[in-house]
Amino acid sequence: MDIYVCIKRVADTSEVDIEIDRTGLALTEDDFSYDINEWDNFAVEAALQLKEEHGGKVTALTVGIEDDEEVLRRALAMGCDEALHLSDPCFEGSDAWGIAQILSAALKGKPLDLLLFGTVSADEGAGQTGGFVAGLLDLPMVSLATSLKVNGSIATVSHEVEGGLERVRELDLPAVVTVQTGINEPRYVSIRGIRKVSGIEIPVSGVGDLGLDPNQVGASGARVKLEELFLPPQGQSAQMLEGSDDEIIDKLLDLLQENGGL
């Protein structure tokens, strides 16, 4: 079984005071630490568990700058067999559509049974790349998978739908599945594990290798442009409500209503 997992390196902003840089288009990155996107980590684990059950090969791929290779190495340490780094100066500034173009170009013609993504990324949070690639490669897809089994040329997937329900689907392989967190318990990658794969040469493919037109990708090819980033109006710590109990509760109700809580 040939499984490909598309992963992404994202910034962990949980403990950081977010600042928007001078261009207004990016965050000040000084304090960021980076790691594999949480959803993608579950996707890698799902791929590895399928490989352990059925045999085959798992390949991790990412689109990004040199530093993004880190997540591929992590995937190798987890047990992926191969990694492919899609990197080229003209990829920079790609929107999700551009990323999907690059991934599709890299995957086209590959002996692929299953293509996994994390459902969304912690930074952009749009949840569209997997669907784009499924559309571009014309593969059937299920999103938000919470369990994934393969039997012969059919994958059985349950996935989250509205109202706390789950639906079970059958997919003809090859197919795309985007994975929801909690589908499994991703294995730990020790420092030693990372060091053991530090010597592996990870192949890099650029725009020429993929047969892409440079104008299709990168900032110039982006169909959706970022115009500005701004911070939502919000104080640092809690707005304390004061007054009589009645007044407090009325104020609270207004705030709840404004924030979609009623």
Binding site: Y188, S190, R192
Partner: peptide
């Protein structure tokens, strides 16, 4: 740990 078998709470 080397086997990746570390609870999520510790990861």
């Amino acid at each position: 740990v080397d086997d990746g078998n570390l609870p999520a709470t510790l990861q």
